[in-house]
Amino acid sequence: MTDNELRLLMSNDMNKGSEALYQQYSQYIYAIIFRILRDCGSHEDVEDCFAETFAEIVRRFENIQGDALKSYIGKAAQNRALNYRTSLRKKLKNTVPLEMTEEPLTENMQEIQEKKAKQQYLLQKIKELEEPDATIIIQKYYFDRTMREIAEMTGLKPHTAQVRCGRALKRLRKEMEQWR
């Protein structure tokens, strides 16, 4: 659905429009928020922040001008998550950095480029894993899900998922040896 179609649907029927908006942008919003809150908040924090962000977008939808709907939504999610991060930091009084930086300041451009190359290579190798191993690795180490949750998602027994995870990680270690 194009942004214009989405706008039309929202103006004609708020319920259908909201559902379409959710279908189209929920993963996008969630990804942005999860990335920002992952090291300082729980899954529940991520979900609360998502819900607040999405509800706010729905409420303000008719006032969103221009063609760049995705950019607006991305920015709204980012800002809300950064605010949430700040309040979590205050609440927890932990050492989470106040500002979310793209890269630690101690890294120079060369290190950043090298890290990105490593990441791309790693993601390629994960993709090349047999399924559901790739899913297990991503869900476990990126989305921080428990083996029970992963087992439910993949239809495996928790123990089987655990074993496959160990094997897949071992294979990735081998594939990544050249980057030592």
């Binding site: 990804a31 890290k115 990126y142």
Partner: peptide, 20 residues
Amino acid sequence: LLQTLDEETAVQLCEDYHGI
């Protein structure tokens, strides 16, 4: 490495592997 992905890659990962 996995936990420090940039935004664009993180979004792609979420869509490819059903982050939700």
